[in-house]
Design a protein around this nucleic acid. Sequence first.
DNA 1: TTTGGATATGCTCAAAGAGAGCATAATTAG
DNA 2: CTAATTATGCTCTCTTTGAGCATATCCAAA
Lengths: 298, 298
Amino acid sequence: MTIGFAHAELIAVLVAVTGDEPRVMTIRSGNALPSGPFEMGHRTLQSGLREWVQEQTEHPVGYLEQLYTFADRDRNNDIPGGRTISISYLGLVNEQSGAGRPGWHGWYEYFPWEDHRQGRPAVLDAIMARLKSWANADPARRDHRHRRADFTFGLDGGGWNEDLALQRYELLYEAGLVSEAGCVAEANLGRAMFADHRRILATGIARLRAKIKYRPVVFELMPENFTLLRLQRTIEALAGLTMHKQNFRRLIEQQELVEETGGTESETGGRPAKLFRFRHTVLEERALAGTKLPLSRN
Amino acid sequence: MTIGFAHAELIAVLVAVTGDEPRVMTIRSGNALPSGPFEMGHRTLQSGLREWVQEQTEHPVGYLEQLYTFADRDRNNDIPGGRTISISYLGLVNEQSGAGRPGWHGWYEYFPWEDHRQGRPAVLDAIMARLKSWANADPARRDHRHRRADFTFGLDGGGWNEDLALQRYELLYEAGLVSEAGCVAEANLGRAMFADHRRILATGIARLRAKIKYRPVVFELMPENFTLLRLQRTIEALAGLTMHKQNFRRLIEQQELVEETGGTESETGGRPAKLFRFRHTVLEERALAGTKLPLSRN
DNA sequence: TTTGGATATGCTCAAAGAGAGCATAATTAG
DNA sequence: CTAATTATGCTCTCTTTGAGCATATCCAAA
């Protein structure tokens, strides 16, 4: 019981954080996600992708997780009688590796409405206005569309929910507000990407934002030693939100995720901060513990 | 950049709950998960699988979610020059559909150590004893193995964590305690399945147990109208744990997930229970709200 | 040297949430 | 009518979370 033979490819969402900015590795000057060949010699998809990424970035991938497998008919249908299966992965790369090199683009370039660290982005007003008129355009589904837009963009009293990145992109796509949807140039929200790559990126962002809350994966994006503020800024960059500083420390420390190295860092111009390192043993023990974050809504 | 042509199949983990027992649809008298053909005519993998399941079970699938894509070399390597890609899905079927019919097997038949509703299962003593001797067998990784076994099976002070179903199965596999690992017959823990199907089932169980805690998917397993106790028993069946009754109601009601139908049910021999129905509008609004459960450790 | 600015870090307090149990209500079986 | 059984309402305590005050330690400029 098979679907016969199909064309298959791997697509990677590789994330690094440098200078408080989350970045994704791209090709074609930021227009596409890297997709790589899978050598038949590898034992698993993971190991094959891992090696391939290491070649490309010249640095190891810390964390690698399968995102989603697409096999829709409207994807790359140029192979007659066949279908393309795209298996996408999310990978985390240490910040020092993926630094300002070409090929790494800040992900808010593609999703300007997702960054709430400086407060609610101004774009959101324009977005909501357009979503409203899109909702009104269909009298039958009007109410449903309004509720959906309000919820997804946090106007229903629940407030902004950073985890809904994918739902927001999908809504904008449906409403024809992103250029991948084949809409008029006028409604260009954020930078577009080749084919459905921006959707895959949104999937990766949403997955990562959800994951950092209950699994200690952020440390894959950090250098060996770091200050707590550095850790906080990294998480804030990913979530697109700011956190309460003191509560953040309390949470991190009471979970015993980190330990002091003994050293300090005085780069930032204030009182020197203690350096910490991740306690790698917790990965063995509590790979699934439950890491929560004190995200504060502005 | 493709991996060339590959052989592809779909594998489904279809779950229903009947008589307080979680069941999975199987073929070959419970020895394998159903894998189905994917008609090229369908637009997406989802829609293809959905139709196929409807044919097989004669009932619609409520919720369908992609689980994982496997393409390991040691899977079905009989196609020269090619590789089999298996895309697995988790589907939820209404309880009245998947009833006691042949083909549906209680999932604790395969994972007897996962059901803690009547307290800690006795098998766990045997399991831990064997895991300990497995750990001691390798002096180099001894400590690591002990920590891992203790954490995964809840002996490290953290208590039993129902979400770790997959990790537990993988640990047992590594330790050679399940017969799929090619171990001696002596160490038969739970009923085995064809190839890696039991591993896929474990993946589905773990995913579902995690999901019911933050997404209202349980209702896909329920009839239109139900009592709160029935809902509780269904969740308990999935989680393999019991819950505090009053706190369960409080949580369900304060989240406004359900509404009274007005009717009552007096089947169970006590005070008649009010009937409730799921508020389908919350699916639109808060598809991602945050449903928590008051799981109580015995 | 002093002062202001900046960040680090410790501590408190109130509000919300979670875990556990008592009490009462409404049925059925005998 | 009584006992058993399940439903449902309410309380109480302990923990967690959100927010802010206060102090410590550095740098740089006056």
